[in-house]
């Protein structure tokens, strides 16, 4: 029971943090677009984004498990876009850009290695995956 409550409270706090971040972003965006957003809109958008993140993380986990890995790599993320070509294109460009920023080729090949986050992605000379 106590752990349930603790989990619920943690979720609430995370949602609040997300709410704040989304609120800031919506405000910025609204200034650019000469708009306004009701507080309820921001709250609803927060819920939507929170749910989307939850689904995304479960998807990613499933994808990497399916690939026999415990570490999610960029291929798994690209699978998220399998039903939306436009989105796939955008993310692919972003992926290329990120790799270019890394400045040393790309890893791409699902040779997963238990790299702790914080280390660079790129390693090895493999060229663009897929």
């Amino acid at each position: 029971m106590a752990s349930n409550e603790a989990a619920a409270e943690r979720e609430e706090r995370l949602k609040s943090a997300l709410w704040y971040a989304i609120g800031q972003f919506v405000d910025d965006e609204c200034i650019n677009r000469n708009l306004n957003a009701t507080p309820r809109f921001i709250g609803a958008l927060t819920e939507l984004v929170y749910t989307q993140i939850a689904n995304t993380s479960r998807d990613l986990e499933t994808f990497s498990k399916h690939g026999g890995r415990r570490v999610i790599n960029t291929d798994d993320v690209m699978l998220l876009t399998r039903r939306n070509e436009g989105l796939e294109e955008v993310l692919k460009k972003e992926l290329d850009r990120l790799r270019a920023e890394e400045g040393r080729g790309a890893d791409a090949q699902p040779k997963k290695r238990g790299r702790p986050s914080g280390a660079g992605v790129a390693k090895g000379k493999g060229k663009a995956k897929q």
Binding site: A54, T56, L60, K65, R70, M78, L80, E94, L98, R115
Partner: peptide
């Protein structure tokens, strides 16, 4: 948020994949 929602505590995510997810949520 991602790690909170992983069912398996041991699941990890690469830095590059993380950046890509960021972009995804941004979009």
């Amino acid at each position: 948020l991602l790690h909170e929602n992983f069912e398996d505590e041991g699941t990890q995510i690469q830095k590059g994949a993380m950046n890509l997810v960021e972009k995804y949520m941004d979009i």
